[in-house]
């Protein structure tokens, strides 16, 4: 099923192109323009060349120090939440009920945190964690743990991470669940005949089938946690000190707080570039996976007469697990 070449297709794409160009290209040009200039108010601008960029990447200056510190915090945060949310999401997806009304109920409850406005997510955890009026803070303090996310850096970090796990693990779980649903029943039957252990079923059937969705999940979570702003801002305001100030929070502080347009614009461009690179890797890996799947799909019917598709995973399991 090859696509046909048709340049008229541009007419179909034109509306999208115009809408996105209006909201993306025009503002981006403004940012590039600002990033090369300095201003002392009164709408007077002075040419600054690549000065801001030099400062941004030099940790000894104020701007560079702040940027690199927040970048480091942000990377650490992304790694931690990926390490928690991905395995937890897989476990939750595997724990989904098989049929009946409970499936719909679980899906709805799982999706609920995803549809709460981000500042309300922050508000919920702000209230929940307060030692005086929040259940979590109250219980922790009652059992003798001195917990206060406003003044203690570690408590603030734990709160922000638990909040993100609460907010986004469902996304990973729902994606994995979609992947699991696509596995034909015959695979499991074949594994059962072979007496494969549960771990073997997970490793040889379920995990490979979840590969693609897991990739989407990891990259979406990486990107979104890399630009996180609202939730930690509402809960901790970036503090105590600067301990939970992530890149977006720093950027908004500089742009809308100090109105330092040149610095903010330079930071924006570097920030955007990092995201763009990660995005490009994401896109390449995704399209390659798509091509691989197509090749597989084409070779599968040819293999069918020899051994049915259902038996394939079973034979793969045999040497490792033996026969029951």
């Amino acid at each position: 099923m090859d696509k046909t070449v048709n340049q008229k297709a541009w007419f179909l794409v034109l509306p999208v192109f115009l809408v996105v160009a209006f909201s993306a290209v025009l503002p981006l040009m403004t940012v590039v323009n600002y990033s090369m200039q300095d201003t002392f108010g009164n709408n007077q601008f002075f040419w600054n060349g690549v000065g801001w960029f030099k400062e941004l990447l030099d940790p000894s200056t104020d701007l560079g120090g702040r940027f690199l510190a927040s970048l480091g915090r942000n990377l650490f945060f992304s790694m931690v939440i990926l390490a928690i949310e991905v395995p937890l999401g897989i476990v939750v997806a595997l724990s989904m009920p098989r049929q009946g009304w409970t499936v719909a109920a679980c899906l709805v409850i799982l999706a609920l945190p995803l549809l709460i406005p981000w500042n309300v997510v922050g508000t919920i955890w702000q209230i929940f964690g307060r030692p005086d009026i929040g259940l979590l803070g109250y219980v922790l303090n009652a059992i003798g743990i001195d917990y206060n996310y406003v003044s203690n850096e570690i408590d603030a970090w734990v709160t922000v991470i638990v909040m993100d796990v609460w907010h986004w693990t469902s996304l990973v779980a729902l994606l994995c669940y979609a992947g699991l649903k696509s596995i034909p029943e015959a695979y499991y039957q074949a594994a059962q005949i072979d007496g494969a252990s549960r771990w073997a079923v997970f490793k040889a059937i379920q995990l490979p089938k979840m590969n693609r969705v897991l990739l989407i999940a990891v990259l979406l979570r990486f990107m979104d946690s890399f630009m996180i702003y609202t939730e930690p801002f509402v809960v901790t305001g970036g503090g105590p000190g600067n301990s939970t100030t992530f890149v977006s929070i720093e950027l908004v502080k500089i742009a809308l707080g100090q109105f330092d347009l040149g610095k903010a614009a330079a930071l924006s461009l570097v920030y955007n570039l990092i995201i763009l690179i990660v995005c490009w890797i994401f896109y390449t890996v995704m399209t390659n996976a798509g091509v691989e799947r197509k090749v597989q799909a084409e070779s599968e019917p040819a293999a069918k007469p020899k051994s049915s598709a259902a038996l394939k995973p079973a034979t793969a399991l045999k040497p490792k697990e033996g026969v029951a």
Binding site: V5, Q7, W10, V20, S23, V252
Partner: peptide, 27 residues
């Protein structure tokens, strides 16, 4: 269909989905 610049256009669209809102707030 396949058309001039389709893959680049698709990637460009995707990259906008990933752009941080904080960058665009001021412009």
């Amino acid at each position: 269909y396949r058309f001039l610049g389709d893959k680049h256009l698709f990637f460009w669209l995707l990259s906008n989905r990933m752009a941080p809102a904080a960058v665009y707030a001021l412009p």
